[in-house]
């Protein structure tokens, strides 16, 4: 079975589940590169941070494109910064590109979304 390079692009705060989906492919021996676009970061729960760290252990990487990646995440998780141009060049080598979920919203989430 060939190991594929898979980029998962996350443009909407609700769809950071793309990271879990990337981990699912990493455990199937693929290289997973979830990319959080324009600062649409998840809440960094222990579960989320462990998933990010696990992707790194499986030779993948979570990236931030368009916003500075947060530092000092739990569980030794790291998110690497990548520019839009660098992302485009990197994805030329991708076997699979997955724009995940929904596009970015026009408005900031209301308070009702905070829980």
């Amino acid at each position: 079975m060939e190991s594929l390079k898979v980029y998962i692009l996350i443009a909407n705060r609700v769809y950071n589940d793309g990271i879990r989906s990337g981990l699912g492919l990493a455990v199937e021996n693929h290289y997973a590169y979830p990319v959080i676009m324009n600062g649409e970061f998840p809440r960094f729960s222990d579960y989320m941070s462990e998933n990010i760290a696990w992707i790194m252990d499986m030779e993948g990487q979570v990236y931030s494109c368009g916003a500075e990646a947060p530092t000092e995440l739990p569980a030794d998780a790291e998110i690497a910064n990548i520019s839009l141009e660098e992302l485009g060049e990197a994805m030329r080598d991708a076997d699979v590109i997955i724009p995940y979920g929904l596009p970015k919203q026009s408005h900031e989430p209301p308070a009702a979304c905070s829980e």
Partner: peptide, 17 residues
């Protein structure tokens, strides 16, 4: 699936080169 944004247009330009 919808009108591409400027970010998408830039990525497509690089991918299509």
């Amino acid at each position: 699936r919808s009108e591409p944004t400027d970010d998408i247009k830039k990525l497509v330009e690089i991918l299509n080169r």
